[in-house]
């Protein structure tokens, strides 16, 4: 079974984002970019399936600017076998909407015929939490989102999902789309020899036009603003003062 893992290049989760003064978006020039943390977990899970003999090949795919190559090299260094870059934008500030990403991924799936797609549950830049579900809809496949545990049993995947009430386990028919949550595994770091090896692994380059997908956005960004900042309050001396303050506010 082949496993396809879509990985997104996003602002590193440690970077403090700045909204541009003209409200045109978030400043992404010269900031550290990394693989979306959820996607690292998806890559790790795919590699573990391969190590367990369940998967035969792990293919990483990214859609975006040319620089997403670096993200794919990271996936290859972790252990993916090969990578596909679909160039769909020139400017690092131009993001591709989940619907367009899902349409391109659907074409990649048609060509690659994976038995399983492992995606992140959300990208930490736009927090849309949509791409996996949309891809599943376009393919008419089953979906299991927010996975914290994944077992392949014959032609089904048994997935434990993190939901509002606690945990839900479902069994989905393969081929399937599974989107991964943070507690599924702890991704490995790529070792230096593996980083070197990754440079020689195949990385195919395509464009959105190759797949005949129109990536024009459906959502127009009217403006981007900073949320109202919260003012720091006061440091209280002891528990008694804290209790008095809360009583003063009338909330206890």
């Amino acid at each position: 079974m082949k496993v396809l893992v879509p990985v997104k290049r996003v602002i590193d989760y440690n970077v403090k984002v700045r909204v541009k003064a003209d409200g045109a978006g978030v400043d992404l020039a010269n900031v550290k970019m990394s693989m979306n943390p959820f996607d690292e977990i998806a890559v790790e899970e795919a590699i573990r399936l391969k190590e367990a003999g369940t998967a035969s090949e792990v293919v990483a795919v990214s859609i975006g600017v040319k620089q997403a190559q670096e993200t794919l090299r990271t996936a290859l260094a972790m252990g993916a076998d090969r990578a596909i870059l679909v160039v769909a934008a020139d400017d690092v500030h131009q993001d591709i909407e989940p619907l367009a990403v899902a349409k391109i991924l659907a074409k990649v799936v048609e060509a690659e015929e994976p038995g399983l797609v492992l995606a992140g549950k959300q990208a930490i830049d736009n927090d849309m939490n949509a791409t996996g579900q949309m891809l599943s809809a376009l393919l008419g496949w089953s979906q299991a989102t927010f996975a914290s545990e994944l077992k392949i049993e014959g032609d089904s995947a048994v997935v434990t999902r993190e939901v509002d009430g606690g945990l839900q386990t479902i069994k989905v028919k393969m081929p399937a789309i599974v989107t991964v949550d943070l507690r599924l595994n702890e991704p490995r770091y790529a070792s230096l020899p593996n980083i070197m090896k990754a440079k020689k692994k195949p990385l195919d380059e395509k464009t959105a036009a190759d797949y005949g997908v129109d990536v024009s956005p459906r959502l127009e960004i009217v403006k981007t603003t900073e949320p109202a900042a919260r003012q720091a309050g006061e440091i209280v001396a002891d528990v008694d003062t804290l209790v008095a303050k809360l009583k003063e506010k009338g909330i206890v």
Partner: peptide, 15 residues
């Protein structure tokens, strides 16, 4: 909200 609430985006849908 985007970026973990560090920015608020106003979007207009053409759909």
């Amino acid at each position: 909200p985007i970026y973990a609430g560090n920015a608020i985006q106003t979007v207009k849908s053409k759909d």
